Amino acid sequence: MILITGATGHFGKSTIDFLLNKGIPSTNIVALVRDEAKAEDLKAKGITIKTGDYHNYDSLTAAFKGIDKLLLVSSSDVVDRTGQHRNVVSAAKEAGVKHILYTSTERKNETASSPIHFVTGSHIETENIIIASGIPYTIFRNNLYLDMVPIFLGQQVLEKGVFLPTGETRAAFATRDDMAEATANVLITTGHENKDYGISNTENISIPEIVRSLSGIVGKEISYVSPTAEVFVETMTKAGMPEQFVGMFAGFSEAIRQGEFETDKTDLETLLGRKPVSAEEFLQGVYAAKK
């Protein structure tokens, strides 16, 4: 029996769909959700729904009984992610879960000096908690989603261009669906215990290269400006962007600039059994109709 946490989110739903498409009976899949009302589409597919909250330990132990493989899709709660995940791992151990899989993140700098330590710190802590639990594990070091690129570029990218302090450094962006399919493939096969997988694209590409590609797709030159982080924060703050979003964009941009997501080591192609979707292919799908 396979249980997916965060099952009403993009990654959880996509993983479940891939499991079903690959022939796993819906009766062998359990979806953990906080709000059952948001899981009607999963119910319609025959998925067993368990209601649980990362802060409610008893709800987790009840949901995890009889589960062989548990996919812990990382919580979106940056403030208390580690505490939530600690509950999940402890409950999994108490319930006798045989294998825990975790969606972590690609990174190079594991110290507090990382510009995205507010994200990576809890991922590293969670990995350590999982390993210390003694439960056989698989950790996915997921790179940045290509799906996030349009958000980084902005809704008015075709009119106003791109203003991001990423410099010329590349990152191995990959689509969320490719990552979810690779995860599904691991869930339905054997030999993945106590392994870390790098889930990155086979190509590294920079934001200015993405902008040039986008210009070719829409038939219009899109400008790209890479300010200093200080100028970016000042400009975006004056433009009325909420502080938390300014900090997030600035942090991830600086992490890209420092090479946190550039890598030539990836297991994604092997786990998929094919080449991952490229940045060019992704951009064509998003922007080709906007010519």
Rank of each mutant, 00 (worst) to 15 (best):
V218W: 05
E234W: 03
P227G: 08
D178S: 07
M236R: 10
S213D: 12
T202H: 06
I210V: 14
M179A: 14
G191W: 14
N185F: 11
V231Q: 15
A172N: 10
T190M: 08
T169S: 15
V225F: 07
S213K: 13
V211M: 11
T235Q: 08
E230G: 01
A182P: 08
F173Y: 15
E234V: 02
E193H: 14
A182S: 10
E193A: 12
E230K: 07
T175A: 09
R176M: 10
F232M: 05
Y224D: 09
V233A: 04
F173H: 05
F173Q: 03
N204A: 13
M179S: 12
A180K: 11
E193V: 09
T175P: 03
T228D: 14
L214M: 07
V233E: 15
I217H: 00
T169C: 05
N194D: 15
L214F: 05
L187M: 11
T237W: 10
P227H: 10
T169N: 14
N204G: 10
M236D: 08
G216K: 15
E230M: 03
A182Y: 05
Y197I: 01
F232Q: 02
V218N: 04
N185M: 07
V218S: 07
E234M: 12
F232P: 00
V186Y: 01
M179L: 15
S226R: 06
T183S: 08
N204R: 12
A172R: 01
I222F: 08
D196C: 02
P227W: 11
T189L: 13
E209G: 08
Y197K: 01
Y197T: 00
I210C: 08
D177G: 02
S200P: 01
S223I: 02
F232W: 04
V211T: 15
N185Q: 06
T237K: 13
A184V: 02
R176S: 04
R212Y: 07
T228A: 09
I188H: 02
E234H: 13
V225S: 08
Y197S: 00
V225T: 14
F232S: 05
D196E: 11
T190N: 13
D177Y: 02
V186M: 07
E230F: 00
T190H: 10
I210T: 13
E221I: 04
E221L: 00
T235M: 00
T175S: 10
R212K: 15
I210P: 02
T189W: 09
T202Y: 03
V186G: 04
E203S: 06
N194V: 07
L214T: 09
E221F: 04
I199S: 04
A174R: 00
T190Y: 11
T189F: 11
L187D: 03
V225E: 15
H192F: 12
R212N: 14
E181S: 08
A229V: 13
E230V: 02
S223R: 11
T237D: 13
R212I: 04
T235N: 11
I205R: 01
V225M: 10
S223A: 10
T237H: 12
E193M: 08
T237P: 09
V211Y: 06
K195C: 06
E209P: 04
E221D: 11
S215E: 13
T237S: 15
E209D: 13
P227Y: 11
